[in-house]
Design a protein around this nucleic acid. Structure first.
Length: 781
DNA sequence: GAGCACTGC
């Protein structure tokens, strides 16, 4: 344990004032506050943080707070906090740890007396918002004053007033990029650490080393039970090797009885439907939650359940009650998601058999959304999970068996309001022997180019030896470094370049950040800004079943034959011309929600661009503009290029040589020889999605390093490029050879560099940008 | 011939 500079801080309370009535925190010694003191402050008539009398509802809420299991353990919590720099707290859902522990920390740490904050991170925005609201109510203060939240697009805090800040883990990571010591905070609480999001994992690593530099910083890691040992070991004392201190808080859950199948089920969807109907026929009243893997599966199952349930009711109206089946997945509009809170249907006739509600959901109901009143859970044991293949640089979603931890979490959903039952559609033996203990943390399943850029910006020099809780595959790190080097974000020694430093400031994938930064050189930064924003939001295209043809026709009217990126630009411009009209979006089968989100992202990115003095420019002539946009796209996405092979519409990705097809949603009116793509998706087949035609000359010109033919793998793609390079060098000798309005002087420079044979000669537009960035940085210093 | 869930000053 390190020294604690606050132990000598004077007790709170002005000496002239006699009684603790005016000063409820009188004699509170920061970080040595006792449970009795906290209890007294909580029960007092004066709010210790506002010095105002408590409102009448305060006492009501206080009674509920006192019922939470964590309250009963306040003694242990406060003592642990006083005695240690780093504490691990584990607790089941319903323990009250997310709301109460940060409050106890505030009563003890007294951050407001030293101009600091207590941060509590959440993996999700909605959680950060709703918990902050809840805690503000509990402490009887307005939300955004003493208690606030900070999430992307919304800062509900008041500098100087807020001392308890809920925030997304991603936000704290962003903050660390500009203040690696996180000086604003006196205590940092990482909640839901067991979810092991990318941001949480990086934060854990940073905090471990920060704890050594800042002995005054306290850290609390909160997690579900199973991971406790791992975190304890990870945070063990470097001197004594003692595991970090652990506190278990009890949950308040009702028992859930778990059933397994005798034999493995060959078709889990069919088995799930059968089980749901069996529960409906035979079990006591209570709602059902069924976990399936995706939208299509869910809609399909809902249809079948409804049909079969109607049959049952018709056959036996005396004993089978009515049933509603509600689908739940993230791409549903929020209004429809709200339906999960509808009550179960009433009996058809007075005193008839009661109705039942069935929610059929993706994993969203496992972590993000809780539905009260669920008594039965049906768990087929699968979910779609992200997997990353560094060899071909492809992230994809695969239906995979869930982990034991996940299965437990799912079962727990049945016991929130009363004792429940969980039907697992696999054998007990499979549960014990086949399921992994934990879901692999995201850092092992993701493309890390973004994360690596963040880490380098955070000042982490040796990425391989960074103290990860779980170290990613070296090949994944290598792939990320390679990409960042080709993008000129890192130099050949892995150091952050001026360009890379700016790129890291944008909440974007490095390719897109690069694209945005070079876009003024192509006189189309307004348009690239739009395209990047549109690529950063979920799918904008709606395609309701039974309306597929109409939707496709509407989309065809908006599409630009030169490429899907330009179609996105066109859709956004039309959306703005129609003033963001909901009906216009709906009539064109577009998601108004996604478009509004893109508009929001666009403004945020625009503010970033202005901060770095990146010009917002356009080209008037539309043909020219479209060409410029396509050229700029090459500067970011030159590694995501495919070349047509043969006549059957097959493409080969450059260098990786993966056979891919244009995704059916692609709007190109022909099959161009060269295309760049935004995404490689592996569903029924390997597809490339959001595709735009490019000229091979642009690849050689704007991505000369990557398209250095001497190091290019042999094949048809290389031969095609060689033919282009041959034509190009002939053309360059002619005096009028300027292809892109670039001066012959610039071209000469480029040729000279190529002659010199520099392995990593930077691309021209970047040259210009890097110099300008350096100037800006010098000005700022 | 077609997408789990999150996130980013």
């Amino acid at each position: 344990m390190s020294g604690n500079p606050y132990t000598k801080a004077p007790p709170v309370g002005k000496p002239g004032r006699p009684k603790s009535v005016q000063e409820p925190l009188f004699r509170f010694l920061p970080r040595h506050v006792t449970a009795a003191q906290v209890q007294k402050a909580m029960e007092g008539d004066i709010n210790p943080f506002t010095k105002q009398p408590h409102t009448p509802q305060y006492k009501k809420i206080l009674e509920m707070r006192k019922m939470l299991p964590v309250y009963a353990q306040r003694n242990e919590v406060l003592k642990m906090f006083s005695d240690n720099q780093i504490v691990i707290i584990v607790g089941e859902t319903g323990s009250g740890k997310t709301t109460l522990i940060p409050q106890f920390v505030c009563y003890s740490d007294l951050p407001h007396t030293k101009g600091k904050l207590v941060a509590c991170t959440q993996p999700r925005r909605v959680a950060a918002m709703s918990v902050a609201k809840r805690v503000a109510d509990e402490l009887d203060v307005p939300l955004g004053k003493q208690v606030g939240y900070s999430i992307r697009f919304e800062n509900m805090t008041e500098p100087g007033t807020t001392f308890l800040q809920y925030m997304t883990d991603g936000m704290l990571l962003r903050e660390a990029m500009n203040d690696p010591d996180l000086q604003r905070y006196s205590t940092i609480i990482l909640d839901e650490a067991h979810e092991r999001t990318l941001s949480t994992d990086i934060l854990i690593g940073l905090l471990k080393s920060l704890a050594k530099r800042r002995s005054d910083l306290k850290i609390i890691i909160m997690s579900a039970t199973l991971d406790a040992l791992k975190f304890q070991k990870y945070f063990s004392s470097s001197e004594t090797r003692e595991p970090a201190p652990l506190l278990r808080v009890r949950g308040r859950m009702h028992p859930v009885e778990v059933f397994y199948t005798q034999e493995p089920e060959p078709d889990y969807v069919e088995a799930a439907i059968r089980t749901v109907l069996m529960i409906h026929r035979a079990e006591d009243p209570g709602d059902i939650l069924l976990f399936l893997t995706g939208e299509e599966e869910i809609e399909d199952a809902c249809r079948k359940i409804k049909l079969e349930a109607d049959d049952l009711v018709n056959q036996d109206p005396e004993s089978v009650g009515p049933l509603i089946c509600i689908p739940l997945y993230s791409s549903l509009p929020p209004q429809q998601q709200q339906r999960i809170f509808d009550p179960a249907p009433s009996p058809r006739v007075p005193n008839g058999p009661p109705g039942r509600k069935i929610v059929v959901s993706t994993n969203i109901a496992e972590t993000s959304l809780t539905i009260d009143g669920i008594v039965y859970v049906v768990d087929p044991g699968f979910s779609k999970q992200k997997v990353y293949n560094p060899r071909i640089r492809v992230e994809s979603l695969l239906v995979s068996p869930i982990s034991k931890a996940s299965a437990q979490q799912r079962a727990g959903r049945a016991g929130r309001t009363r004792p429940g039952k969980c039907f697992r559609l696999y054998t007990e033996k499979d549960f014990m022997k086949e399921l992994e203990e934990q879901t692999h943390p995201e850092i092992l399943r993701s493309n890390l180019s973004n994360t690596v850029l963040e880490l380098v910006k955070l000042g982490i020099k040796d990425l391989v030896r960074f103290d990860y809780v779980d170290a990613p595959a070296p090949e994944t790190l290598m792939r990320a470094l390679e990409l960042l080097n080709y993008l000129s974000a890192l130099d050949d020694d892995g150091n952050l370049t001026a360009l890379g430093s700016i790129m890291a400031e944008f909440p974007l994938d490095p390719q897109m950040a690069k694209l945005l930064i070079v876009s003024p050189e192509f006189r189309c930064s307004n348009e690239i800004l739009t395209i990047v924003a549109m690529l950063s939001v979920p799918n904008i295209w709606l395609r309701p079943p039974y309306r597929r043809r109409e939707a496709d026709e509407a989309h065809a009217l908006l599409s630009v034959p030169d490429g899907d990126h330009l179609t996105l630009l066109n859709v956004y411009n039309n959306y703005k011309q129609n003033l963001g009209d909901r009906n216009w979006a709906w009539n064109n089968y577009l998601s108004q929600r996604a478009l509004a989100q893109a508009d929001n992202v666009r403004s945020q990115l625009q503010r970033n661009m202005e901060r770095f003095d990146i010009d917002l420019v356009s080209t008037q002539d539309q043909r020219k503009l479209y060409t410029n946009v396509r050229q700029a796209l090459v500067c970011g996405f030159f590694m995501q290029v495919a070349h047509r092979e043969g006549e059957k519409g097959a493409y080969l990705t450059v260098k990786d040589n993966q056979v891919v097809n244009l995704h059916p949603s692609c709007g190109l009116d022909n099959q161009p020889e060269w295309v760049i793509f935004n995404e490689f998706v592996l569903t029924t087949k390997p597809y490339i999605r959001t595709v735009t035609e490019v000229r091979p000359e642009w690849l050689l010109e704007y991505a000369a390093n990557y398209y250095d033919l001497s190091s290019f793998p042999d094949g048809e793609t290389k031969r095609a490029l060689q033919r282009v390079a041959g034509r190009r060098s002939k053309k360059a000798i002619e005096p009028e050879g300027s292809s892109n309005g670039r001066s012959s002087k610039q071209q000469k420079k480029a040729q000279q560099r190529q002659k010199k044979g520099q392995q990593k000669s930077p691309m021209d537009p970047v040259d210009v940008i890097v110099v300008r960035m350096q100037q800006i940085q010098m000005q700022q210093q």
